[in-house]
Structure formats: structure tokens, C-alpha cells
């Protein structure tokens, strides 16, 4: 685990093992204007770390709406058609699919082989299941999770990021990143402390 550096040992900004700079804030009111400042300074590869979703931070940071709902819609609709196909093919047809599996047209009380109303419960459940799986798996993967560790989690200071502290992390590979200027910007934005974060060994 990397110990806190402070700002005395300033490595060159192009040194590969520097992950970025982390600034700590004590309240939402301090974080929001700082986030706006960082955004206006033209940074792209940066993020705010908060213990709970902070209202208005999307606007302050300029985060665009995620495409996740569209993914869910597409997967959900696919689930729906898969459900319709499942009910129809297994209960109302008897033609072969590959791998020697075929449907079985059941006569039950003289009812039609396929009727949408009778199949809607199953179609609905399959749709919901597919959509929910898409939402959860999509969220986890788009967030770059799961991962076992992250440079930001290796320092002592971020132990409180899931409790009561607010942080701004600017990554070193941001084109605008400059070791001194970035730190000055964060200090000026009202950070309680600024710390270097290095890549995990």
C-alpha cells in the first residue's frame, strides 16, 4: 500500500507510474463549484468520487446521459421475441431445429395451439428477466467493474470516500494534465488536501 506523499516529492509529469492527483473536499457545497472549475479548465479524464450520488454533479461535470437504457430496451425486446418464439415453437409447431430438437404441438381441451393471451405471462416474464439482466450486467461492465483493485483505492485517504468525504481525481494521462498547474487549480478550487496517486505496483 502506497503511503501518502504530500507534495514534496514531485516526479516529472510524464513519469509513467503517476496515476493522477486526488483532491479532497469536505462537503457537497465545496465539491460542486470545484467540479465546475475543473471542467472549465478543459480536463477530460477526471471524475468526482462521492459517498452517495450527488445531485447536480452531472451538470457540473458535464456528464452526458448513459446509453444504458437503450441497451436495456434492445435486450428486453430480444427477450420478448425469444419468449414468443419459445411458446410458439415448443407448443404449436413440430418442425426440427438443429441439434435434433423439435417442438411438440399439444392438443389441450381443443384449445388453439398458439394464442397470444395464454402465452403473455411467460413472454412478459422472459422480457423482464432479459431487461433486468441487461441493466445490471450492462451497468457493471460499463463502469469498468468488477475489478479487484484500483490506484485510487490504494491510498489511505480514500478509505473515507464511501463514507463522508468527497474527492476529485484528475488522471495523469489527461492531455491538459500538468503536475504543478493541476495541483494549483485544485488548491485554488478549495481542496482541503491534494495528494498524488501512483499506479499500483
Amino acid at each position: 500500500m502506497t503511503a501518502a506523499h504530500g507534495s514534496q516529492s514531485a516526479p516529472a509529469p510524464d513519469q509513467p507510474q503517476l496515476y493522477g492527483l486526488l483532491a479532497e473536499f469536505s462537503s457537497v457545497d465545496a465539491l460542486l463549484p470545484a467540479a465546475t472549475k475543473v471542467r472549465e479548465a478543459g480536463y477530460r479524464r477526471w471524475d468526482c468520487l462521492t459517498p452517495f450520488p450527488v445531485h447536480k454533479l452531472d451538470a457540473a461535470m458535464g456528464v452526458r446521459a448513459t446509453i444504458l437504457p437503450w441497451i436495456v430496451l434492445i435486450v428486453g425486446l430480444s427477450g420478448m421475441f425469444a419468449g414468443i418464439f419459445l411458446c410458439w415453437w415448443t407448443n404449436a409447431t413440430s418442425f426440427d431445429l438443429p441439434f435434433a430438437i423439435r417442438g411438440y404441438a399439444y392438443h389441450i381441451s381443443g384449445k388453439p395451439f398458439f394464442s397470444l393471451p395464454a402465452n403473455i405471462p411467460v413472454i412478459f416474464e422472459v422480457t423482464v428477466l432479459a431487461s433486468a439482466l441487461a441493466a445490471v450486467i450492462g451497468m457493471v461492465l460499463m463502469n469498468g467493474l468488477p475489478r479487484l483493485n484500483h490506484p485510487l483505492l490504494t491510498i489511505q485517504r480514500t478509505r473515507r470516500l464511501t463514507q463522508d468525504r468527497f474527492f476529485i481525481a484528475i488522471e495523469a494521462d489527461d492531455p491538459n494534465f500538468d503536475r504543478q498547474a493541476t495541483e494549483a487549480l485544485l488548491q485554488e478550487a478549495g481542496a482541503d488536501a491534494v495528494e498524488e496517486v501512483t499506479e499500483s505496483p
Binding site: L49, M61, L145
Partner: peptide, 10 residues
């Protein structure tokens, strides 16, 4: 899962 509570995560 390595959750860090970044705003993009949230």
C-alpha cells in the same frame, strides 16, 4: 466489485 463511487459510476 471494486466500486469507487465516481460520478460516472453513480
Amino acid at each position: 466489485l471494486g466500486w469507487r463511487g465516481t460520478n460516472r459510476h453513480w
